[in-house]
Write a protein that binds this DNA or RNA. Sequence first.
DNA 1: AATTAAAATTGTAATCATTACAAACTTAAA
DNA 2: TTTAAGTTTGTAATGATTACAATTTTAATT
Lengths: 143, 143
Amino acid sequence: MNAYERLTEYGIKPSVQRMAIMEYLMTHFTHPTADEVYMALCDTIPTLSKTTVYNTLKLFVDQQAALMLTIDEKNVHFDGDTSLHSHFFCRRCGRVHDLPYSGKKREARELLIEGHAVEEIHHYYKGICKDCSEAEKENKNFN
Amino acid sequence: MNAYERLTEYGIKPSVQRMAIMEYLMTHFTHPTADEVYMALCDTIPTLSKTTVYNTLKLFVDQQAALMLTIDEKNVHFDGDTSLHSHFFCRRCGRVHDLPYSGKKREARELLIEGHAVEEIHHYYKGICKDCSEAEKENKNFN
DNA sequence: AATTAAAATTGTAATCATTACAAACTTAAA
DNA sequence: TTTAAGTTTGTAATGATTACAATTTTAATT
């Protein structure tokens, strides 16, 4: 599936900017921030505005075509993989790693928990990631 | 247990400000933001600085005497209840509700997942809370 | 008690991610 | 081709958080 199809599938009218941003999310599983998306695309789309990146990512999230990760208190991260999975945030290098979802497999939508209508499930781990742990052992700095 | 004991237990040297902030966390389970803590205390401690509130909450989190919740992209929330439990963030009213932890009960500390050293486990739900759902049914606004 | 050093607190100013807003541009329909 | 609606853009504002240096407090020592 390409970016165009993905957008229309989620009821989003395609445009050059929207396709570029979706394409980026579909090919980079680094959980980028809005700024990282902007920096990656502003060379190929020189007229791109950061406001557009923010607006577009918000649109994707509203349409459930992307996930907004609030795992990092410094920056909001975005994830083009909307399947149910967990995340690990490394407080050393600041990266977000994917992990399989370890909770009960239940549907995110149409779920009531203690009377609250659940729309999203987020499962986060925080700590020091494998790369940073190994780098520390060797007295080296990762990054 | 009072605030003084709690602080010393977590290796934090007590002070008037620290005890007031810890006392607030121990008696209010509203998951306040730094600003809410400041606003609640600045009447009784008129010289209190917002910087002190930020520094102190960070100290509590570093010493694991409180949890930092990044569930809300607008504000960091704090939780004096460090036991393993889940949270529900209402995108309507912005409040954070407690929920029992539904995942596997495993120790947060000393846990390796795919090579990553886990220090914290966070389980978040997002959606519309019970109060807001009921208020909407009655065509009223909660808040 | 006076001296001193370390730690804690404070206020101000800076930072920086995000948003508001209005103008400019594009699209597609009429 | 006009019109309206939707989209993009740039600039300026917002607001939470942090940096920093000065002040105050604490606690140990003389």
